Amino acid sequence: MLKHSFTFLCLLILAGCAQVPENKVDERDPLQNINRPLYDFNMDVLDAYILRPVAVGYVEVTPVPVRNSIVNFTDNISAPVDMINAGLQGKPGNASVSLARFLVNSTVGIFGIFDVASSLGLNHVDEDFGQTLGVWGVGDGAYLMLPAMGPTTARNLTGDVVDNFVLPEVALTTPQTILVFVLKAVEARASLIPQEGLLNDSLDPYLFVKDIYFQRQIYELYDGNPPIKEEPEDFDEDFLESL
């Protein structure tokens, strides 16, 4: 509730910002007049003074094996969510893999610290409720830039609420849910540090982030095999997978 109140307050404050020229209006981004100032706030304030310094410090003091264990642990916590969404999407194979990964890594892998399942050929399959809604035919909705949260769409924001707060609450307490969310956020930001040059070299960083975000959604929705378009050459696969 607090997050959405903060978002609403930002929208009110920024509603009077300069208008975007009509020839630059993107149908996917009807709120661009609001999203651009929010992007600047995220990058120039939150990322510059909080997120990036935390991520850089995290990388410097955390050995790679420990970082891998943290990723393994958070992925394992999310495995039941992956399983449920795979089932809702009509992917029994992916649902079975997620269930098997959870059972193997929670036991042999010591609560998911070690990814034993991947060595057995049970590779992680990321499924979320935003993808589930997409499979069900729900459109993206408006593109949104949220304070601290970054890019999303109306559909994926709904999916994130279900994935990050509704489903985990079945098994985790609120503090545990928040801890897992923070660990994922810090690791996600840290994983983007090697790719910052792509963003800095782009002519319009806002458009770059938006375009690559939509590319990522197509990549995920079709499990890495989009039926029509391939990722633009400027967007390497490592960067897409790290978002």
Rank of each mutant, 00 (worst) to 15 (best):
L172I: 01
P194M: 07
L146H: 04
D140N: 12
V125I: 05
V116L: 08
V104L: 14
L157P: 07
S202W: 10
M145Y: 03
D160W: 01
L183Y: 03
P175M: 02
L146C: 08
A142H: 14
V135E: 12
V170C: 11
F102K: 01
T132K: 08
N164D: 11
N200L: 13
F208C: 08
L172F: 13
K184F: 07
F129Q: 03
L120V: 02
G130P: 05
N200S: 14
G130I: 02
T152M: 13
I110E: 06
N156F: 01
S202R: 11
V104E: 05
P175L: 04
V125H: 11
N123S: 10
V138W: 07
L122N: 11
A142T: 12
G159Y: 06
P151Q: 13
L167N: 08
D160Y: 05
H124E: 07
D115I: 08
K184Q: 13
L133G: 05
W136Q: 09
F129G: 03
V162Q: 04
R155E: 05
W136T: 09
P205Q: 04
T174Y: 12
L122A: 09
L146R: 00
E169S: 12
L207K: 03
S106T: 10
P168Q: 02
M145V: 12
L199C: 03
N105E: 08
V182G: 04
G130Y: 02
E187F: 05
G197H: 13
P205R: 00
D140Q: 10
L122K: 01
